[in-house]
Design a protein around this nucleic acid. Structure first.
Lengths: 205, 205, 205, 205
DNA sequence: ACGTGCGGGACACCCCGTTAGT
DNA sequence: ACTAACGGGGTGTCCCGCACGT
């Protein structure tokens, strides 16, 4: 009875709704093509609320990279590779997850959200570039660290340079996802993924 | 006497100037972010001329993919790999050309023009997607054909699947170029390129 | 018969209509408070046309100062004082015109258009300041030149400094008009005008 | 014990800070162009506090005229002229103060705060007009009263009409300040001030 | 007395496309 | 083949004001 609260006052939830709507909008239409009007409409709020929580479109985009995409990377790459006992297998599993899971949900049609923003905004805005590169860097470091562990444990060949392999894996992953976007076919993605896993297999010690 | 032509009427040259200006504009600002006004300004013509030669922004974008980008791909990938005597070495050379040449000219900062359009427009417009995919397909086929030649000639291991390797090479190349865009550093690109060349080396028969 | 022209294509007339609508809008609501939407509505055109003829709001404001206000100053001050045989009387007539004519038409309620823009925009925008100052300078020079003629002809006292008197006349005129705006009464304007004319009379040689 | 007040509650000080911030903001950007958000930011408070002390933007503007500007006028014009023994000299001193003092501090660049508001808001809002006119009226009355004293004492010519001269002095003062704003040069202000003082000198009995 | 999440509406800007005309 | 006036709509931005909460 007491808790009537017709209009809810939940700043964090409002902010979250807008971030998620923005993530989806930018994922579909790009950052420049994305419309704030559409975002607030989907989020069920107003432009006034948006400009209360964010300083502008740019600030909203930055928050999407840091909060939404950063969390996704954490769940998919950083956590699985931390304290891995068999780095190569875990890497292969993460790589295969793209074609195994994401294809079903249809998300792959729009491409990797981070890569999309990277291609579009890195050359145009230094703030975007730094934030995006930070995400990729942490991804590369996580992979390189796992590979180094494998080298130390003897499960990976001694002549393998963890940094270079990590750079190639990340690049290939970006490329494979992009391939799917333009080919609109699973086959090319699957074949490239197979070749990548074969390559990783060849590194086993 | 007949050809006085105070004001030059050169439809093909006009069209070409607009295409090149459009290519540069879309390369820098993306297709959606690119401005027709800016394009005609750079090309030194007017909107009327543009809409005389092209049906609209979309049609202009299609022409950029087909005419400008198609020709670039031909020169860099298709011609060098045709009738190659040593496919792996030629492939490695083409792959290294990105970091060897393009870095000097600064072009890599804006990313691969084709990949940029692929990321941005493939999910949004079917016409773009088909044209872009056609380019990538011809690139993959050229690589696969060269690899198959190598297998037949015995310079490449028999268990190599040309199609899969071609898919990975193209994807990795896309990813490496994208990496450069966001990292703004040559180092990561170089390391990934090295790993890719090592991988190709391991395929030698 | 040949000149049917259903939709008239008269760029100069369109530009003129927009300039006059802009002049009125800025006169009533100030430059910052003035609305482009309202201007095009009054002018019977569209925003597209406005942005075709002017680069933006600022450019429109500049054109108002140069074209509209400049012409008004010419008619009211510069031409009457040129080749004047009795500068003091002509000056007094011009000064009295404000209370004699403008009060009837109600224009004085909104203040002097040039002075309004001067007060509002001079400190905020250098382009405005320069254009406004140019108008005032030509007004001061015209008055000073007429006074100098009078001194030379002996109709004005020898110890009169034309430049200083011109500066005072212009300043007083600005102030009198402003006085009317805030007092909303003719009386104060009339009295100040009388005192100004008395002062001018005292300069007679 | 009662007065713990970790967060200070000083309503009068808060109100004062907001008034001063508002005065500066309106002085620089005009009333319509001034931003409440900017005002509360400068004042170090919030919109809630502002709307607690004032009913809205208009009410805040009124308070600026009455409290801040009214006090300034009192100090500069009303008090010096009250019970003056030599009204003309005191007037000349007040008039010269503008070019003597304010030019150094740079305040003259933004124009007379009261005149700015008068030009902008008098025609748009009756409440503003009345308050502004009240200030100018008290200024004119103070000058006229001082002049009348001088006439009675014989230090000023008998045929001088104090009301008219006061009206001209106020108007000229407004105009001179405005002149400085648009000319951005001391010279014109100085010359007009000289001419005004000469005029006042000519009234001596 | 004061802080803040939030609403709704205006603003200037600029876009792409069309059409009358050369 | 090419020009330029013009239409209408959508953009990001930001504003003032309110009402809930402390």
């Amino acid at each position: 009875m007491t808790t009537q609260t017709r209009r809810v006052r939940a700043p964090e939830a409002t902010r979250r709704k807008m971030l998620e709507a923005a993530f989806a909008e930018f994922h579909h239409n790009g950052f420049q093509g994305g419309s704030l009007n559409h975002i607030v409409e989907v989020a069920g709020t107003t432009k006034g609320a948006l400009f209360h929580h964010f300083r502008g479109k740019l600030d909203l985009g930055y928050a999407v990279v840091d909060d939404i995409i950063g969390r996704m990377l954490l769940e998919r790459w950083l956590q699985p590779l931390a304290n891995s006992r068999d780095p190569l297998s875990d890497l292969q599993r993460a790589v295969r997850q793209l074609v195994a899971t994401d294809i079903q949900t249809g998300d792959w049609l729009q491409g990797c959200p981070l890569n999309n923003l990277a291609q579009e905004m890195s050359p145009l805005d230094e703030g975007f570039r730094r934030r995006i590169n930070k995400q990729y860097d942490s991804m590369r470091q996580a992979i390189a660290a796992a590979l180094a562990d494998g080298v130390a444990a003897g499960t990976i060949r001694r002549d393998v340079d963890p940094g270079s392999v990590a750079a190639l894996v990340v690049a290939a992953q970006m490329g494979i996802w992009g391939t799917g976007k333009s080919s609109q076919t699973e086959e090319v993605m699957l074949r490239a993924t197979d070749a990548l896993c074969d390559y990783l297999e060849s590194l086993r010690g």
